[in-house]
Amino acid sequence: MINVADLISESSLPGNYFAPDAYVQGDFESGLIENRQGRRLLALPDTLLKGLYRGLASEVGPAAGMVLYNCGCKWGKNFFRRFSEEVSNYYQKPVEQMEMIELIQCLKQCWKAHGWGIIEPNFSYYQQGFLVVKVKHSAFASTVESAEKPSCYVEAGLLSAFFSELSGTNLHCIQTSCESLGASSNQFILGLATRLKPAEAMVEERKSHSAIMQSLCQER
């Protein structure tokens, strides 16, 4: 027989750590925002981001994408560390011991609480060695100007580092569709760099996400 008193005393019963009204705390007088652990959050205006992108493009030209991707990777590593710490503390178990569905739910809520969009990882291609991530209302796409191909390099780098840290394997990330080009969502494919190599040319050729996915899975 299940003893409810034991059940209550032996387990913590937490809800959504990243509920926006609890996670983001602000102080109007000081103009500061911080998360529920008291760590500072930074709000970046669109104008500043657009200025940074333009400045970088004029300084390094076509290499700007690579620079931003690497920035995203570096940020992603730190982000994963902070995310793991906060989630482990709140749910009182290491990230490695959390169920995947619970962890992914944390990531989705975290993404939303930070205002980065609605993220939806898709593990259907796990057996083929790929992870697909879809992001709607991406904050990263909203600052891209006059792009000719998917250009959310920071977001791609962030995803690459996050899932590399999570899986313990170096995963590359390629964006295959972009809201800044009129697509309904940003889509990304993550996998080993060697397996993703053919996708780079296909993105340049403006092939659709589904066509790229089909081609990658056939090449196995």
Partner: peptide, 9 residues
């Protein structure tokens, strides 16, 4: 926000 967006999935 605290629970109904958290548990359904």
């Amino acid at each position: 926000h605290r629970i109904l967006e958290w548990l359904p999935e």
